[in-house]
Computed example of a mutant assay.
Amino acid sequence: MTSRYLKFINTLFVVLPMTLLMAFVGIVRNHGFHEGWFELACKAWSVMFPVAYIAAFFIIPVAKRLAEKVTAR
């Protein structure tokens, strides 16, 4: 595979488990394991994932530059 798609796939592998975990913890913490908790978690994740995936492309370069500044000292 070319490095052309590496950025997109790498971001997918970071964002996917993070948003799944965040949706699960948020639903369980706010609603508990009652009837329909899985559907609520899926609905929350279906909104979280695209937003986080797109936002990651703006946040990651800024975070990289900031980390390089901090570690350069």
Rank of each mutant, 00 (worst) to 15 (best):
M1R: 12
S3T: 07
S3A: 08
Y5A: 07
Y5K: 05
L6E: 05
K7Y: 08
K7N: 10
K7R: 14
F8S: 07
N10W: 10
N10I: 09
T11G: 10
T11E: 09
T11M: 12
F13K: 06
L16H: 05
P17F: 04
P17T: 05
P17V: 04
M18W: 07
M18L: 15
T19C: 09
T19V: 09
L21I: 15
L21Q: 12
L21R: 11
L21M: 15
G26C: 13
I27Y: 01
V28R: 10
V28M: 11
V28Q: 10
N30E: 12
H31D: 12
H31G: 02
F33D: 00
H34I: 00
E35N: 13
G36D: 06
W37F: 10
W37R: 03
F38T: 06
F38Q: 07
F38N: 03
E39R: 13
E39Q: 15
C42R: 12
C42T: 11
K43F: 06
A44R: 13
S46M: 08
S46G: 09
M48R: 03
M48W: 01
P50I: 11
P50L: 11
P50A: 14
Y53S: 01
Y53R: 04
I54A: 14
A55F: 13
A55M: 13
A56I: 00
F57L: 01
F57W: 02
F58D: 05
F58E: 01
I60K: 02
A63P: 00
A63H: 08
K64V: 13
K64S: 09
K69L: 10
V70Q: 07
V70E: 05
V70Y: 12
R73Q: 12
